[in-house]
Design a binder for these strands. Sequence first.
DNA 1: GCACGCTGACCCCTTACGTCA
DNA 2: TCTGACGTAAGGGGTCAGCGT
Length: 257
Amino acid sequence: MLGDAPGELYYSPSGLAMEAFDYVNPSWRQIKKGKGRGKSNKRRFSDEQIRSLETIFESETRLDPRKKLQVARELGLQPRQVAIWFQNKRARWKSKQLEHDYAILRADYTQLASRLESLKKEKHALISQLEKLKDLADKGAAAASAVTDGDRSGVEDETKTEPPAAAAAAAAAAAAPALLLSDGVSSIKAEWNLGILEEEDDHHHRHQDDSESLKMNMDVMDKGSSLSSTRHGPSPSLNSDDLLNDSSPTQWWDFWS
DNA sequence: GCACGCTGACCCCTTACGTCA
DNA sequence: TCTGACGTAAGGGGTCAGCGT
């Protein structure tokens, strides 16, 4: 391994001890110290060191002190450098994870917004259809009433020769119960809700895989740590499926204009 | 058992520098 | 060669848990 050469001063603070690394890691580029940073000769780790650290990080995102010492010895780094590398790595990993989460949420939102638009259109079409039927029913009822008022003597003939308007009224009356005219909109909402939930179920199962994977990833980072803010309490759920949850105080149709 | 101080580990933000287009 | 964006090692402050007194 890199730090196996005997007699190297790996563990003293930066400065003299770092000279040994130039011998061990000739690939390192020495960086001249800047202003205000004391004696910090900042060097990039070698590719091999990075590879090793990445490999270790894949299996454990945190190192116990003993392992940290071992890794530091093997890679010819100071334990503090290993600790800082892991710290920075966790921060970078978390940042990427946030980007990933954001992308998923955004895709989810786009999908929901698109479905909302199509549901709005469907709603308007059905309301329009409902009003036509209502109109038809009103006209039919008026015509039927005119017939009964106008010719009380011909009651027995009514069943034989039903006028077109009365026929329309009968048809409308037959259609009306199916649409529940008295409370048509809420009934339609209920039917749509059922249909959507069935459809949503499919989508939900598909999306659940992603959510579970995310949760697992974050759980990995949470092992004894605070990466997903467990230290400060659980994160709020960001699942957009909640919009369709019946227990939600705000129903999805409340967002309709 | 409880309060207090110390210490180490960690997170977060920032700085300073290297690298690259 | 210069420059700005981006990546990264490291500094510093704050918080928390564990431990001894």
